[in-house]
Simulated assay, not measured.
Amino acid sequence: MLAFYIGEGILLKMAVSPLFMISKRATLICEMDSISLKTVPPNHSDYGMVMVVLRINSLSLSCFRCSSSAIENIQSLDLSIIDSILSTTTDRELVYVSADSHGPTTFIRFDFLDNFESHHNRSMGYNAPFTLGNPYNYFGDYESEYEYEVVLGIPSHEFRRILRHIREFACLIVDVFVTDASTLTFSSGPEDLVLTIEDDGCVVWGIEWYRTARLRMTLFNMDSFMEASEHSTFVWMFHCPSWSDIPECPVMLNCPIGHLGNIKYYFDERHDRRFPEC
């Protein structure tokens, strides 16, 4: 059995909506300390984005319960249904989510409880079929164990401003260059946009003055990034450069969703076989 309360139900809606912009299906993984939704875009093998993970930490939830059977069962969920159910959530409601397996399906129930008017409570449900294996688990179960050396913190309003500017030039590839501890350069086609650490409030860790790190991301799912980034002060980028002693892992764009958890987008240049020219 899986069961938990979210005091601000609107946060769950905000967390699931950007994933639905990536794919209509996701894999649910329940662990003792977290709940994760994993998905991949349909064109992941061609365009560099290889996985998206919504991870909700159990410490941000109330009355969190996850049985051993729930941990073993990996369900392929229809995000269109989940998003439709959560779209009815208001900022006045808390949400109680419960899931029980019954033969070949798992019934997921959403109880919406109005914090101010008890008679406005309502319930909605979804029967999720049990799926053997994990077709959406691109990197395996160990993405939480990736280690990164370079960390960039970018004010979310600056991040969205840059993406909107790049969109005007119809260029879907962005290289973020970190050459020292004072500037970030976003390079996309003919455009170079520079943010300074001191003036623009960026954060940089893990770069020495004589090093240059490049973080590549693709913008085929830009609307998802834009929406996810609206719910936090900063977005974060993580990288393990070629000169690092840490084993290579994909570039990660991390968008916190309030105190609930994080949406993490993974980009791997080994799979950018058909990056289009700008």
Rank of each mutant, 00 (worst) to 15 (best):
L193T: 14
D199M: 15
R216T: 07
A228K: 03
R270W: 07
K264D: 13
F234E: 02
V176N: 05
E230A: 12
V235I: 10
I263H: 09
F225I: 10
H259A: 14
G201I: 00
R273E: 07
E230T: 06
V251E: 15
W205Y: 03
H231N: 14
D180A: 11
H271T: 10
V204L: 14
E158I: 09
D199I: 05
I197L: 15
E168N: 11
G153P: 11
N221R: 13
S182V: 10
R160F: 01
R270L: 11
P155Y: 00
M217Q: 08
R160A: 10
W236M: 14
M226R: 10
F169H: 13
V235T: 14
R216H: 08
C202T: 06
Y210D: 08
C240Y: 02
S187V: 11
V203Y: 07
F267T: 07
P247A: 01
T185A: 06
C240A: 15
H271F: 01
Y210I: 02
P247M: 14
S229T: 06
I246S: 11
I207E: 00
E191R: 03
A170K: 09
F159I: 01
H165K: 01
G189Q: 13
F234L: 11
W205G: 05
L193Q: 12
C202L: 14
A170M: 00
L172Q: 06
N254K: 05
P247D: 02
D223V: 12
F220C: 12
R214P: 10
F275L: 06
H157D: 15
R270E: 11
M217P: 04
D175L: 08
M252I: 10
C249M: 03
L215P: 02
C171L: 08
F234A: 14
N221Q: 09
D180L: 06
I257H: 05
P247R: 09
N254S: 12
R270F: 04
F177K: 02
F220K: 03
F169R: 07
M222L: 12
P155T: 02
H259D: 14
H271K: 08
V174I: 03
E168L: 14
W243I: 08
F159Q: 09
R164P: 09
N262R: 03
R214S: 03
S187M: 10
P250I: 06
R160H: 04
G261S: 13
L163M: 06
T185Q: 03
D268A: 15
H157T: 13
M252H: 03
H239G: 03
S244Y: 09
H271G: 02
L219P: 11
K264P: 07
L163Q: 08
M226V: 12
L260R: 00
E269A: 14
A170P: 12
V251T: 08
R164F: 09
F225W: 00
